[in-house]
Nucleic acid binder design. Structure first.
Length: 155
DNA sequence: GCCAACGTTGGC
DNA sequence: GCCAACGTTGGC
């Protein structure tokens, strides 16, 4: 696998976890992902130091709120073993964990959220996965060029 | 292995 | 709150 730095967009609903939370926590396990494609990105493709766009979804100001970076190698999501958690998975065992995650470290909060509408206006972002109709993946790869373009839209 | 029913996501 | 898209579930 390539050692080249990669780039990702990770969605979160700010009601449950926002860029402000990450700023406060500095590093957090990206727990609660229960989609195999997203899990596979974390488990198989992410590397420490990869760039992350932190995206706020299902809220008043939908868009990219800041940046972060991948801060660990993959390890089991503890919430899958926690019976009291919304993310408890009765089919997961410590011997055979089903859900893996990485830690994410705060890098930067944009002064203003880059709105989804601004992303849609950029012709060079036309292939961005979250702009494609029906895409619901909470973790998607972005190219280095897309990452740079989005950074350039930040005020 | 098919596929209908159902649940979730997420923008609007 | 609506609804389109799409993943998951489970009966057959």
């Amino acid at each position: 696998m390539s050692k080249q730095k990669r780039y990702w967009l990770m969605k979160s609903e700010p009601v449950s976890y926002s860029i402000e939370h990450l700023k406060r926590d500095v590093v957090t396990p990206w727990s609660g992902i229960r989609n195999y494609q997203s899990r596979n990105f974390m488990r198989d493709e992410m590397r420490k130091g990869d760039g992350v766009l932190f995206y706020h979804s299902s809220c008043r100001e939908v868009g990219v709120a800041g940046t972060a970076e991948v801060a660990s190698t993959p390890y089991p999501d503890a919430t899958q073993f926690d019976r009291k958690s919304d993310y408890y998975d009765p089919k997961a065992t410590k011997e055979h964990p089903r859900w893996m995650l990485v830690d994410v470290r705060f890098v930067k909060q944009f002064k203003q959220v880059i709105p989804l509408t601004a992303l849609r206006r950029e012709n060079s972002l036309r292939n961005l996965m979250i702009l494609r109709p029906g895409n619901r993946l909470s973790i998607t790869p972005v190219t280095r060029e897309e990452f740079r373009t989005i950074l350039s839209l930040a005020s």
